[in-house]
């Protein structure tokens, strides 16, 4: 197990290294500069050089790259071009709370609704409940989250005036974005739980439990649900991807000052260092979640632990 974790962590570092390298050179290949070109052209050469030097842009690309990697390894993501003088790490951590709150709410809401739907659908297999759940699941994966967010904003926020339309003012501001974000999660989970549970319901030990004369509730909670929930951990990866991509558009639509909207803004501003910083932040988060998923899965399901111990 220790060896396995070690190998996984080495992979993680290699992945992050590759991502930071690719990001760095892609940013270098970008057309345009983060500076106001018209104003820059008016400056005398000396001052231009000073501006470049203050960002380390006067050195050869390779030296810049080495410096960048060195800094990243020490947790320094550089200084923003757009928010003059601010450290990228500070900007990101300042924007972390709204994103984290909305993401967490979306996951919890999605888990709760998704689990209930999935369980009911499997228990009442091939009935109206089941079909309704499947329709919700298909719609959930099919409706792009930004379309849903825009419609929610228009109807719930603007037309009916039930919840704040946009901006980050008080707690209710976080409700609509969370709802828009959680629909994809509901769909993923409901569908997955349903399939898993149908499989477990077919197992011999469920028949045994029935033959022993256990009550339905006992069978469901003691045998079926427990065994089907184990593998929900495995779809945590897709769920995280869903949340990350969702946050990029949904935070923008609702004007939430989170990391997603920061990323989209810095793309529009050509703010290299912030783009690179958020790319690394997202990647690190994603890679870490994947590692935790694999380890947790091995922990709760001994069959997997044996298999991964060998490889």
């Amino acid at each position: 197990m220790k060896r396995y974790i070690g190998i996984r962590i080495i992979y993680m570092i290699i992945t992050l290294f590759i991502i930071s390298t690719v990001t760095f050179f892609l940013m270098k290949a970008l057309p345009g500069t983060p500076f106001d070109e018209e104003k820059l052209a008016q400056l005398p050469d000396e001052q231009k050089q000073m501006i470049y030097a203050s960002y380390g842009l006067d050195k050869p690309v390779f030296t810049q790259y080495v410096n960048y990697i060195k800094n990243v390894a020490q947790g320094d993501l550089g200084t923003s071009f757009f928010y003059t003088g601010q450290k990228v790490t500070d900007i990101i951590s300042g924007r972390l709370f709204p994103s984290a709150l909305i993401g967490l709410q979306a996951v919890l809401l999605g888990l709760a609704v998704g689990l209930i739907l999935g369980i009911v659908a499997a228990y009442r297999h091939n009935t109206g409940w089941d079909y309704a759940t499947m329709i919700i699941a298909v719609l959930g994966v099919s409706i792009p989250n930004f379309v849903l967010a825009a419609l929610l904003q228009y109807y719930v926020g603007l037309k009916w005036g039930l919840l704040p339309v946009a901006f980050w003012e008080s707690y209710p501001s976080s409700i609509l974005p969370s709802v828009a974000l959680c629909v994809g999660v509901i769909a993923l989970i409901a569908r997955f739980v349903r399939t898993e549970m149908l499989e477990v319901l077919d197992q011999d030990y469920v028949t045994t439990a029935k033959a022993k004369g256990l009550g339905t509730i006992r069978i469901m909670f003691q045998h079926v649900i427990r065994n089907s929930l184990i593998s929900v951990i495995t779809i945590l990866g897709p769920i995280v991807v869903n949340l990350l991509t969702g946050s990029l558009v949904i935070e923008n639509i609702f004007g939430i000052p989170g990391i997603g909207s920061l990323f989209v803004d810095s793309i529009k501003m050509n703010d290299y260092s912030t783009i690179m910083g958020i790319t690394l932040f997202y990647s690190a988060f994603y890679v870490l979640v994947m590692l935790v998923v694999d380890l947790l899965y091995g922990l709760v399901d001994p069959r997997i632990r044996l298999a991964s111990g060998k490889g």
């Binding site: 992945t15 590759i18 991509t245 997202y282 990647s283 890679v287």
Partner: peptide, 9 residues
């Protein structure tokens, strides 16, 4: 390694 990279980014 490639699957470790969030593709949308």
């Amino acid at each position: 390694i490639l699957t470790g990279i969030p593709s949308l980014i």
